[in-house]
């Protein structure tokens, strides 16, 4: 049985930060080489057999532009991730919390060739709770699936008294049983193949 502590929470935040900065360095590397190549085209112009064509130069500029957009999207996700922790409890969107963690985990999931399909209910009720604890739960549930080439389905929906995040395939939820750390949220395993994270609406 795994008991959770603030150390687990810090490890989660550390993982998110290291994934983010690693990805940013990849984006910077592409911008660096693309800009360097443009510079080289001028520096080596006398030794080039033919001058670069306009189309080639435009392709390099488009590549730089694409990396800036990728970086900006990731920075936006990390920025909102950080802002959610400004207060321990707040009114939060379950869908946004889930999508944000998945965006920040993109690189780690791609490395294991894990694909994710989301089905997010448009009418999810806003709930008052701890966003980073909810995101830690989603992170644990998704990364513990961990098998290479897995395809994970995530669905959000409301019941009369709860907001539910359903993750298939699931994992045994022993990691949070008997733990007060996640209360009032809890998780159940259904038929051994699906995990439901249950967030009470009141």
């Amino acid at each position: 049985m795994t008991q959770f502590s603030p150390d687990d929470h810090l490890a989660f935040i550390g993982k998110i930060l290291s994934l983010y900065t690693h990805e940013q360095k990849n984006h910077l590397a592409i911008i660096n080489e693309s800009a360097g190549l443009l510079g080289d085209m001028i520096e080596f112009s006398e030794t080039l057999k033919s001058l670069p064509e306009t189309g080639q130069i435009l392709d390099i500029i488009k590549s730089i532009d694409a990396q800036i957009k990728r970086s900006s999207e990731m920075a936006k996700a990390l920025n909102s991730f950080g802002h959610r922790m400004d207060t321990a409890l707040c009114l939060l969107s379950v869908n946004d919390c889930v999508k944000e963690v998945l965006a920040l985990l993109h690189r780690a999931l791609a490395q294991k060739r894990i694909t994710i399909e989301g089905d997010y209910a448009a009418d999810m009720a806003a709930i008052t709770g701890s966003p980073s604890t909810l995101q830690l739960l989603v992170f644990k549930a998704v990364t513990r699936v961990a098998e290479e080439n897995a395809h994970i389905n995530i669905k959000t929906f409301n019941t009369d008294d709860s907001a539910i995040i359903s993750i298939t395939p699931g994992i045994p939820v022993d990691f949070m049983e008997d733990s007060d750390y996640f209360k009032p949220m809890r998780a159940v395993t259904i038929n051994g193949r699906e995990i439901n994270i249950i967030i009470p609406l009141k």
Binding site: A29, I30, E33, S34, L37, D40, L48, A66, Q67
Partner: peptide, 15 residues
């Protein structure tokens, strides 16, 4: 696996 990075670096090294 970053194609734009690797292809630009190839051109720079070949120059």
């Amino acid at each position: 696996d970053e194609e734009d990075y690797a292809s630009a670096l190839v051109e720079r090294l070949n120059l």
